[in-house]
């Protein structure tokens, strides 16, 4: 039987290599904010308030190109809607926690916390879950805010010969490649990329949401034709049965 403290410590141990991998991403979140003309407090506002890297970078990029606030907000919602799936997937494991703890935990629900918790909770059902969750989440949060601050301060003084803005699509590229791992997700990515390229001259950067929605529809269509939804149904039944 593990104690609360052991579970928290286990979370910290598991998350440390992941934390190192997120350092450049946090730096770029700060540098991109500085590059778009935002000060340190605003850069930290993105990282503390939203705490979701890809959506922060997209919003900062859009604001830097004078897109309307509504387009930036809609883009944040589209990119982060994947977290609906994380909440739904982890919810059964936290169902016995009191509401206020689940509300607190929700703030920290990022990709890495989700992935680590799902693996560890399945492998070790006796482990106290919420302490493990916070053990992975708190180092990630501290690391994220810290490197955003460093990036925001350093960003303004970096030489202009380095096209820092290019780091943003590179981060997305590093996340995109593993996200395209089967036929429906490849179709979703290719369709979105095509529409985004053709529709880029549309006003108010409307090409981005248009491309994303098209990609999701095409991916879902390929999944339905290939029997992916039926497989997901079967997998859902299996999860509920355990």
């Amino acid at each position: 039987m593990s104690t609360t403290r052991d579970a928290f410590r286990q979370g910290v141990v598991d998350v440390l290599p992941v934390v190192l991998g997120v350092v450049p991403f946090g730096l770029i979140a700060g540098v991109a904010a500085a590059d778009a003309g935002f000060d340190l407090v605003t850069a930290l506002g993105f990282s503390v308030g939203i705490f979701a890297g890809a959506s922060q970078l997209a919003a900062i990029d859009l604001l830097g190109r004078d897109a309307p606030a509504l387009v930036a907000i809609g883009t944040i919602a589209v990119i982060n809607s994947r977290m609906l799936m994380y909440g739904a997937s982890l919810a059964p494991y936290l169902a016995r926690e009191p509401l206020h703890r689940r509300l607190g935990a929700a703030y920290f629900l990022v990709d890495q916390v989700y992935a680590l918790c799902l693996i560890r909770w399945r492998a070790d059902p006796e482990l106290p879950r919420l302490p493990y969750y916070l053990g992975t989440a708190i180092p990630l949060w501290v690391n994220w805010v810290l490197w955003t601050a460093v990036g925001a301060v350093a960003g303004a003084s970096l030489p202009s010969a380095i096209p820092l803005g290019f780091a943003v699509p590179l981060v997305f590229l590093a996340l995109l490649v593993p996200a395209m791992h089967d036929r429906p997700t490849v179709a979703a990515g290719v369709a979105a990329a095509t529409v985004a390229t053709v529709a880029a001259p549309l006003p108010a950067n409307l090409g981005m949401p248009l491309a994303a929605v098209t990609g999701i529809a095409v991916g879902l269509g390929v999944s339905v034709l290939g029997g992916g939804v039926r497989e997901a149904e079967a997998a859902g039944d299996a999860v509920e049965a355990t």
């Binding site: 994947r82 369709a191 990329a193 985004a196 491309a211 990609g215 999701i216 991916g219």
Partner: peptide, 16 residues
């Protein structure tokens, strides 16, 4: 929901 990361990221990358 599973399609969102691939679609959203590809949509962000291409214009940039």
């Amino acid at each position: 929901l599973r399609m969102i990361p691939a679609a959203a990221l590809a949509a962000l990358i291409m214009p940039a």
